[in-house]
Design a protein around this nucleic acid. Structure first.
Lengths: 116, 116
DNA sequence: TTGATAGTGAAGCATTCACTTAAGTATCAT
DNA sequence: ATGATACTTAAGTGAATGCTTCACTATCAA
């Protein structure tokens, strides 16, 4: 396919990794430094920084450096984008199921898998 | 890390690909055969079948074969799981921002970035 | 100034991903 | 029986991912 990477690609890709979800969970409770983010994670600081880069590129996280400490915080917008996409799909199939249910209620005879 | 793959891993990973999102969008409007799913996609049928396998493993899609045609439909549960995770994160930072806003409203003096 | 802290950057490596092509197997229509 | 349809399976390939280690640069504290 080789499209330009859409926001949703990056968002869902970022959320697909359990380490990154742990980081997002931590940040949704409040800002944290890179080291704080790394503390519960069983991997090198380098690896954490790389995950952080993925989160920043996806727009899920912003960060700024003051002195020698980089403070990270979530940027709610990207998360909302993903949530919205899912909600739209749900709306779509819920509408369809409603129509189907209504049809079946109005046409109670000859069910498709009719016995005997 | 090498964890056992959690449901959310598979769900977000599945949604990270634009081709698979197109397939999910199609299926949220109603069931479709593999060929129907493949029609708008610019790739081999094999590739589509592989994407379908990813969607099925993630639990986002179910399918059954009757005769020579495999009919696919979305399975709402996995999508709800992803939606729920996001909603929980949002709840978390919204609560925090509420507390912060309340604190600032109650302590209008000495703002942290105070001038002069 | 010396040392610890907090992070950065680059290279390397095994694995996974998103495809492709090619060769199959059922099923249905004639 | 023959051919077309609707997949299915396997093998291969190049690029992306998720790490590692090692070397490095700032910043702060004593």
């Amino acid at each position: 396919m080789l499209h330009y990477q859409q926001p949703l690609d990056l968002t869902f890709q970022a959320l697909a990794d359990p380490t990154r979800r742990v980081m997002v969970e931590r940040l949704s409770r409040g800002p944290a430094s890179v080291s704080e983010l790394a503390k519960p994670l069983d991997m090198s600081l380098s690896a954490v920084v790389q995950h952080l880069a993925v989160l920043e590129q996806s727009g899920l996280v912003r960060s700024e450096k003051v002195g020698r400490v980089r403070t990270c915080r979530i940027a709610p917008k990207a998360l909302s984008g993903a949530e919205k996409w899912i909600a739209e799909r749900r709306a779509s199939w819920e509408r369809r199921l409603d129509r189907l249910g209504q049809f079946l209620a109005e046409n109670p005879d000859e069910p498709s898998g009719s016995k005997r």
